[in-house]
């Protein structure tokens, strides 16, 4: 017997049925959690902007949120929240912080240099690389344009 269990439609059927993710529920949770994180950010920004200039205030908001996400990651609470919040915690700067802190914490067992040091950008690396690349391309375009201005 030589049965071949890859009928051409199996893959297609699997793909279609697997799409049964709770799309509406996920979107609602992402909205609520993501919105709440941004509202907290805004709530921090308003008093900070009075203490310093708006630009620094915005950076401080980022730093505070990164600190909070790092602490929650360390306590093992961030991944529990993210499991439900999805993009609600992933897209705000909290997700960036978690993507740096979690490999650092996780690879502590492999040492401080080749573990923490080598792995710390293993997830956030793509974002940093492509942000730098996009920024530099924009800068290059600006510089070229300035030559003809």
């Amino acid at each position: 017997m030589d049965r071949h269990f890859s009928p051409p439609d199996y893959r297609e059927r699997v793909r279609r049925r697997a799409a049964a993710t709770p799309v509406v529920k996920n979107a609602a949770r992402a909205f609520l959690v993501g919105g709440a994180i941004c509202a907290v950010g805004q709530g921090l920004y308003i008093p900070l902007a009075r203490l310093t200039d708006p630009r620094q205030a915005s950076v401080w908001v980022t730093v505070i949120l990164i600190f909070a996400a790092a602490a929650l990651t360390g306590l093992g609470l961030f991944d529990r929240l993210a499991r439900h919040a999805g993009a609600g915690t992933l897209l705000p700067v909290t997700g960036f912080a978690n993507s740096v802190v979690s490999p650092a914490l996780d690879s502590r067992s492999e040492g401080l240099v080749l573990g923490v040091g080598a792995k710390i950008f293993s997830i956030a690396g793509p974002v940093i690389l492509y942000a730098t690349l996009a920024g530099s391309l924009y800068g290059l375009a600006l510089w070229v344009a300035s030559l003809f201005a």
Binding site: N26, A82, R83, I123
Partner: peptide, 17 residues
């Protein structure tokens, strides 16, 4: 998780499957 997926404390969402 460490071997095949992501760090344990990384906040990811799994599909129902």
């Amino acid at each position: 998780e460490r071997q095949f997926r992501t760090p344990l404390e990384y906040g990811s969402q799994r599909t129902p499957t």
